[in-house]
Write a protein that binds this DNA or RNA. Structure first.
Lengths: 253, 253
DNA sequence: CGTACGTTTGATCTTTCTCAATAATGGTGG
DNA sequence: CCACCATTATTGAGAAAGATCAAACGTACG
């Protein structure tokens, strides 16, 4: 692992989770032109309908993808954590089909989309990694459809808590013992397709059942195994550790 | 457009919707080794948990992606139509995270995953097209999350009908005047996260309102504009015609 | 022509939403 | 350091969308 102070280190690490990169691949990613941007909580990284000329990588802080219906209801589509290439969409599609909003103060690195396109074409291991990142994101979206479409409120919230915990743990942030929920109950409602009031009641119930403990937004998993069962959670869909699939592809180069 | 009788023609056309392919790119796709498989309605193209060594392209018929919860509830994740590369997941991820089931009689072409990986590495325009196909699929999944999470039953069903109509029209199958719904009301319930009983009542209501006409599974759009409004449908998220983004990438090769 | 599957309908029940009010909590300026 | 304000969390009561249960009706297909 090459060690530098570049904010692109995070992107390298992220891609490395999905494909084995050579030193040249790593250096090419680190050499990407980019500009750092600091953002306040609530500010938009990307707005729905934007035609962006760069791809943002989240460096610090948390963000959410979201869409708003014609009637004004908000639905959260993903929790973005540091290292996420927040809008590959804008690199390969014409127009942003959803918005990305900061939950906390944070920074992003803007990479010109042309530079990223060229990188992908010149370093296929990076391209393979990005394809896999995109496919994993799809897999998580599918699980969200199942979660919202076919689980009741209690199961939904338990499932989402498990997913966040595992994803954060994978990046070395918090873990499955407990973590700081990076959002309000209202935003958690927009994640789960519920109302804030009902989210509050369900959280209270999960606590009363002895599955979690709460103090403000800090969630402690009092019974991690039981919570996973309630949430019908099994981490396969996160495809953690699948990068070996692509290893031989990189090797074939 | 090169004209042959290969079942891979459909794949070429599909990728061409997303990236400008050279004749060499086209030929490389058509030359992919593959085996045709005929499938009955209800049979599985891929099962959840499979470790497949090939990527299936749907050649004829309709299929659905689906997952089943621990409690046994089914959720449909996508309607697959001819030309869809049904499991790119299996080409780049270890394990299938969902099943694909035929709705009708049909055929698929199995392409060895290694051959497809090599093709993508050797022909970046094809790779770019596949990246874009995957991103469009993600975009549709995001809209499904919104649909199920934040729209009521009437809006959901109207939205899904509009989406199917536009997607079918794009491939020259049926259109926005009407189409043959390729699934039962029970399956439509699994698409929308509702019960079959409620789907039936909503369809009846949409008909009573003069938005659609039905005769068995044939849906006629009596008022296409109004139906889109009810369903809060706007086709941007389907990213139809976005291939120009990638055109210059292909040209740069 | 009967059997299986899909559709339609009715009656009742539950989950979740809506509306409304109150209580914490954190941040800010004095 | 304290008082105030805005945001977030909590609680209650009632309403509504959609689920569940059960049955009847069609229609295709063997």
């Amino acid at each position: 692992m090459i060690s530098t102070q570049s904010p692109l280190d995070l992107l390298v690490n992220e891609i490395s989770l999905h494909a084995r990169l050579s030193d040249a691949d790593r250096r090419a990613v680190l050499d990407l032109p980019h500009r750092i941007r600091a953002l306040d909580p609530g500010s938009y990284v990307v707005r729905e309908g934007d035609h962006l000329q760069h791809c943002c990588v989240l460096v610090e802080g948390y963000a959410i993808r979201q869409k708003v219906t014609g009637a004004g209801a908000r639905q959260v589509l993903a929790l973005c954590i540091p290292g996420d290439a927040v809008d590959l969409q804008n690199t390969f599609l014409e127009m942003s089909d959803h918005a990305v909003q900061m939950l906390t103060r944070g920074t992003v690195a803007d990479i010109p989309r042309r530079a990223l396109q060229d990188l992908v074409l010149a370093h296929s291991a990076v391209g393979a990694g990005i394809i896999q990142m995109t496919l994993v994101e799809s897999s998580i979206l599918r699980e969200w459809v199942v979660n919202i479409g076919r689980r009741d409120a209690r199961e939904r919230i338990a499932h989402v808590l498990c997913e966040f915990a595992v994803r954060l743990e994978q990046r070395g942030l918090n873990g499955t013992h407990g973590f700081e929920l990076p959002m309000t109950q209202e935003q958690l409602a927009d994640v789960t397709g519920l109302t804030p009031v009902h989210v509050n009641r369900v959280l209270k119930a999960l606590e009363a059942e002895g599955l979690i403990n709460r103090r403000r937004r800090l969630i402690q998993f009092a019974d991690w195994r039981a919570l996973q069962e309630v949430g019908d959670f099994s981490r396969g869909y996160l495809h953690i550790g699948d990068q070996d699939v692509i290893a031989h592809v990189a090797a074939a180069q």
